[in-house]
Amino acid sequence: MPRRSSTSDAGSGERRRGKLRYGWTTGACAQAAAAAAFEALISGRFPDPVTIELPRGRRPAFPLAARELGDGWARACVRKDAGDDPDVTHGALICATVRWRDQAATGTFFRAGPGVGTVTLPGLPVPVGEPAINPAPRRMIRAELARVGARHGLVYDPELGPPLVVELSVPGGEELAKRTWNPRLGIVGGISILGTTGVVVPYSCSAWIASIRQAVDVAMRQGLDHLAAATGDVSARAAQKRHHLPQLAVVDMGDFVQATLRHIARRKPRHLTLAGGFGKFSKLAAGALDLHSSRSQVDRSFLASLARERGADARLVRSIEQANSALEVLERCRASGVAIGTAVAERALEVARRELDAELSLDVLVVDRAGRIVGEAATP
């Protein structure tokens, strides 16, 4: 069944211009859960729904999915609604347990509970050993807790927050994390608490692009100067095997070639390998830097022209122009001895080269569905 939408700025998500619903980040959910728990710790009552203040003036309200009040502590949970975005954490419980710190303590201290990861490698926005709770959610939670305190006459610096221990947990978060980038980034034990605005924009792809950037940064902080960016698992394994790379050096860029290249250009590793399937990289070769099927298509006329340059006869050229898929083009060229994979690799290299610093060396691997390299090219 499709999820029900809401026309108000509420915790169940919000419809965007009559089309797709916005959702809420794990950071916003953690903010709401912490605010409800702190209110109960002070007053003995849980607000339900709990309203929070996000950047850009949004004030969503979140219904509570669970609550518990004990001696000197309170716990509240909200269920994450990612709106119409395909998010692995959609439906997850985001829980916050709050306790007072020692009287002499200053500010809010964060702790990773079950299902929230811990950082083990440098290069991420928080230091090694810290809970995987990004800086923006930490700031938003501290400020929200200060606002809760202010309603009860308790004055706290919104940058530091009240003297509390806030433990965030996500039941089942360790399993969810296996479907994210966290294991590769050295985040162990669960998911990350993320978000800069608190809002998930459907299909914005911002989370994936942010993960690409983090993966590059972590790899380089480990001293790796040869990175590989691949469009999927098959091409990633081909690149790793060809260059004997550790897994940490291989970045899953998906369809986001331009975002990947621009970040790598800023970080300047010594060498970059781009690896992708024949269909995906035929689009890159034609100049597309976003390879998603909704934003770029395989151009059979372009492939026919490449085949002609490689010696294809008129009959093969016509069959390429009429082919049903990129796979069919590859198979017909392979049967005729036409090195279409190499032609695609060389053109893809030229396109990628324009996005990168000239000092960075580059090679391109084009693979078939079985992971065989069917074309490659490299800078001199």
Rank of each mutant, 00 (worst) to 15 (best):
P127V: 14
V250Q: 02
T180Q: 02
A76R: 07
E350V: 12
R310F: 05
S211F: 02
A112Y: 02
V298W: 02
E309I: 10
D225S: 09
G189V: 14
E175V: 13
A323P: 04
G57F: 07
E346S: 11
A377C: 08
D255Q: 00
V257C: 07
K178T: 09
P171N: 07
A286D: 12
A40M: 12
I320N: 00
S305I: 06
W181P: 06
G186Y: 02
V329A: 11
A229G: 10
A236M: 03
V188R: 15
A286M: 14
C29K: 01
R332N: 13
G186L: 06
V298H: 02
C333H: 07
S293H: 07
G161A: 12
L168S: 01
R4I: 14
P63A: 09
V216H: 01
L356A: 05
D81V: 10
I94L: 15
D363Y: 03
G198H: 03
E53K: 10
R308H: 08
V200S: 00
R318G: 12
D81W: 05
L303E: 03
W181L: 15
R4F: 11
D81N: 15
S301N: 14
G311V: 10
T273N: 05
D313T: 13
E159T: 10
S169L: 05
P122S: 15
V166W: 02
H263G: 07
I187R: 04
F62N: 00
R242F: 10
R310Y: 04
R21Q: 11
A370R: 15
D252M: 04
H90V: 11
R300C: 08
T379R: 03
Q247Y: 03
I320L: 01
G195N: 07
G277P: 04
R56W: 08
E68Y: 03
G11H: 08
D313C: 11
K80H: 06
D9R: 05
L248A: 14
G91P: 05
R45K: 12
K283D: 11
W73H: 13
V344Y: 01
Q322V: 09
A265S: 15
I187Y: 02
G276V: 13
R138W: 04
D252V: 00
G189M: 10
A30W: 00
A10F: 06
L245M: 07
A35K: 05
E376N: 08
L330G: 08
H244F: 12
R75N: 14
I373L: 03
I191G: 05
W24L: 11
A136W: 04
T196K: 03
S305H: 10
S204F: 09
V200H: 00
Y22V: 09
A323G: 07
R111H: 06
G190W: 06
R295C: 05
I187E: 08
S43L: 13
D313M: 11
E359P: 01
C77P: 07
L365K: 01
L224S: 05
A249K: 02
S294L: 13
V126W: 00
A146F: 08
P171M: 12
T106R: 11
A33F: 07
P114V: 10
Q103S: 10
L289H: 13
D48N: 15
N134C: 04
P114Q: 08
V188K: 06
E14G: 06
L154P: 11
W24H: 15
V200N: 00
L291V: 09
S361G: 09
F256W: 14
L274C: 04
E328W: 06
A28N: 04
E321A: 11
